[in-house]
Simulated assay, not measured.
Amino acid sequence: MHGRRTAAFLALGLGAFLIVLGPLLRWYVLPSVQLAAYDQDFTDVSTGTGYYLDQSTGRLAWGQITVARHTLGDAGAGRTVGKAVWDISTRVDTPRTSKLADARQAFSLSVHRWVFDRHTNRSNSCCGGDTGAGADGYLKYPFNAGHRSYLVWDGTAGRAYRADFTGIRTLYGRSFNQYTMRVPATRIGTMRVPPSVVGLKPGADPVTAEEWYSNPEAVNLIDPLTGAPAGGSSHQIITLRLPGSTRTAATALDVELRSTPGTEKALVDAYKAKHDGLALLTGPVPYVLLGVGAVGVAVGGVLLRRPRTVERAPVTTGALPVGGAAR
Rank of each mutant, 00 (worst) to 15 (best):
R148F: 00
R148G: 01
Y150T: 05
Y150R: 08
V152F: 04
V152C: 02
W153D: 04
W153F: 13
G155H: 02
G155T: 13
T156N: 11
T156W: 03
T156I: 13
T156V: 15
A157M: 04
A157V: 05
G158W: 11
R159G: 10
A160E: 12
A160C: 07
Y161F: 15
Y161W: 11
R162G: 01
R162F: 00
D164L: 04
D164I: 02
F165M: 03
F165H: 12
R169W: 01
R169H: 13
R169D: 14
T170A: 12
T170D: 15
L171M: 13
L171Y: 01
Y172I: 02
G173W: 07
R174E: 14
R174T: 06
N177A: 09
N177D: 15
Y179P: 07
Y179G: 10
Y179V: 10
R182L: 00
V183L: 09
V183N: 09
P184E: 10
T186V: 12
T186S: 13
T186M: 09
T186C: 09
T186F: 11
I188K: 10
I188N: 03
T190G: 12
M191R: 14
R192S: 15
R192Q: 15
V193M: 04
P194Q: 07
P195E: 06
S196A: 15
V197K: 11
V197S: 08
V198Y: 06
V198E: 02
G199V: 10
L200I: 03
L200M: 15
P202R: 12
G203Q: 05
D205S: 13
D205T: 13
T208V: 15
T208N: 07
E210H: 12
E210P: 01
E211F: 00
W212V: 15
W212G: 05
Y213S: 07
Y213M: 07
N215F: 08
P216G: 05
P216F: 09
E217D: 07
E217Q: 15
E217W: 00
E217H: 06
A218S: 14
A218L: 11
A218P: 00
N220C: 00
N220A: 13
L221G: 00
L221I: 01
D223S: 05
T226E: 02
T226F: 01
G227T: 08
G227H: 06
A228T: 06
A228K: 12
A228Q: 14
P229V: 03
P229R: 06
P229E: 07
A230S: 12
G231V: 06
S234F: 02
S234W: 03
H235A: 10
H235R: 13
I237G: 01
I237R: 13
I237Q: 14
T239A: 02
T239R: 13
L240F: 09
R241S: 03
R241T: 01
L242C: 05
L242R: 15
